[in-house]
């Protein structure tokens, strides 16, 4: 099999910086979405995207230093994201029930 493939197909490596820059790109896209979007659920998902991007950084650093600690941090980020999603979605449900909208610029009064 290997003789049919270009040389270096199995040995070529990816620079670590590529992973970090990918993480930065994802974070920037998430931040962009956070600023631009008006739907409260989508904004929530943009936050999740940013958390994911940070996770990628953590795991990449874990590779760089050859230690598992970075992965532990990303595990904690996941746990916190799960807790956040549960509470956040409950809040969204309550908002929708009380105000009947998910547009974030329409949710601007303290009394309804």
């Amino acid at each position: 099999m290997s003789q049919f493939l270009p040389p270096g197909f199995f040995t070529a490596t990816v620079p670590l910086n590529a992973y970090l820059i990918l993480s930065a790109i994802l974070f920037a896209i998430g931040a962009c979405g956070f600023l631009f979007r008006k739907n409260i659920i989508t904004i929530y998902m943009c936050i999740e995207l940013m958390l994911n991007a940070v996770n990628l950084s953590f795991v990449t650093f874990s590779y760089q230093f050859g230690k598992v600690d970075g992965q532990i941090y990303s595990f904690f980020v996941m746990v916190v994201a799960a807790a956040e999603a549960a509470v956040g979605l409950a809040i969204i449900l309550t908002i929708f029930r009380n105000l009947g909208t998910l547009q974030i610029d329409e949710i601007d009064s303290l009394k309804n």
């Binding site: 990816v14 992973y19 990918l22 659920i41 929530y44 998902m45 999740e48 994911n52 996770n55 990628l56 795991v59 990449t60 874990s62 590779y63 992965q71 990303s74 595990f75 996941m78 746990v79 994201a81 799960a82 999603a85 549960a86 979605l89 969204i92 449900l93």
Partner: peptide, 29 residues
């Protein structure tokens, strides 16, 4: 990508927790 970086457990947790539970909750809501 986590798998490529050698983080096997985190890759599986990503599938189970993030895409298998959190995002299902989002889709459900």
């Amino acid at each position: 990508l986590f798998l490529l970086l050698g983080a096997e457990f985190i890759a599986a947790a990503q599938l189970v927790v993030y895409s298998g539970a959190i995002m299902v909750l989002f889709v459900f809501v």
